[in-house]
């Protein structure tokens, strides 16, 4: 069964583009990544699913129900964490979480117990005023607020900003636990490695349209890395004529290129070089779009 299904979902803000003809299906129990640069339409898609904005055309269903017609009913089973969290400054953390819980038709004592255990997990002081919290701690309130009612669908819009690595790890662990218990997760991000850690499938969105949906496994096999080398001698371009190398740039003693393919192949070549230093990094999304999807664009 599909938890989320969108058909030609389109949103224009006046004349400016939000998303165009987005077709997306997220199966039950899946962790679905949603990746693209800022302004590509990730938030627009997510906000349409939540009923925060209304589609210009096309439709979307969650749990088989139309998001516009059955919004409140759907949202009983949805937990949402936005990229930036804002709450009522005059409230204490526990008051806000109880207020949040009061919207759901679920057992209060169960939610209350879960709030307590999650707060303990994230080391969050429930008695503090929202106004006195650091950004990271506000984010924790957001996580608890989104997960306390044990939703069947968890929607996360760039959730990791402001979380330190340790908390992020705990958060991802928690998400995997929820997923193991049966929750479906939609996770948007502009950081590829984050999505790789967590997701089963990933949709890549650019300029308002989904340009590719891929299993993470496939994406990893085809993963593109940027190599930056520092050599003793001035390098010869022909030495880098290995399959999968692109965007080769040689300046003085340094070389930079993108490599897509099996890592073993490239390390063999590197072993023959007289290296001073070398760096392998994730290409940013723009680079992936430019090189990994060149072929699709040309078609």
């Amino acid at each position: 069964m599909n938890v989320i299904e969108t058909t030609k979902l389109t949103k224009y803000y006046g004349k400016s583009r939000g998303i165009i003809d987005v077709d997306m299906t997220v199966a039950e129990g899946e962790i679905y990544g949603f990746i693209g640069p800022n302004g590509a339409g990730k938030s627009t898609t997510i906000r349409t699913l939540l009923g925060l904005i209304h589609p210009t055309s096309g439709s979307a269903t969650i749990f088989g129900k139309d998001v516009t017609a059955s919004g409140p009913e759907i949202r009983q089973e949805v937990g949402y964490l936005p990229s930036e969290v804002f709450y009522y400054d005059d409230m204490r953390v526990i008051d806000l979480l109880r207020y949040s819980a009061s919207f759901y038709r679920k057992d209060r004592t169960a939610i209350e117990a879960r709030i307590k255990s999650l707060a303990e997990l994230f080391d969050l002081d429930l008695k503090k005023k929202i106004d006195d919290l650091s950004y990271g701690n506000k984010k924790k309130v957001g996580i608890i607020q989104g997960l306390a009612h044990e939703p069947k669908l968890i929607i996360l819009d760039e959730p990791t900003g402001g979380l330190d690595p340790l908390i992020q790890q705990q958060f991802f662990h928690l998400l995997k636990e929820e997923n193991a218990k049966g929750a479906t997760i939609l996770f948007s991000s502009h950081i590829l490695s984050e999505v790789q850690k967590l997701c089963d499938r990933v949709a890549i969105i650019k300029d308002g349209s989904i340009i590719k949906v891929e299993q993470i496994k496939t994406l990893l096999e085809n993963s593109t890395k940027r190599f930056k080398l520092e050599l003793v001698e001035t390098p010869v371009a022909s030495a880098f004529a290995v399959d999968g190398v692109s965007d080769l740039a040689i300046t003085n003693h340094s070389v930079s290129f993108l490599y897509r393919g099996r890592v073993n192949e490239i390390t063999k070549m590197l072993a023959e070089q007289d290296l001073v230093d070398f760096l392998v990094e994730e290409p940013d999304l723009e680079e992936i779009f430019m090189h990994y999807y060149k072929k699709e664009d040309e078609q």
Binding site: I74, Q76, F86, F103
Partner: peptide, 14 residues
């Protein structure tokens, strides 16, 4: 104004 619309309007309430 307080940017809490995301919180309130994503709750199950019309």
């Amino acid at each position: 104004a307080g940017k809490t619309a995301d919180f309130l309007l994503s709750k199950p309430m019309t």
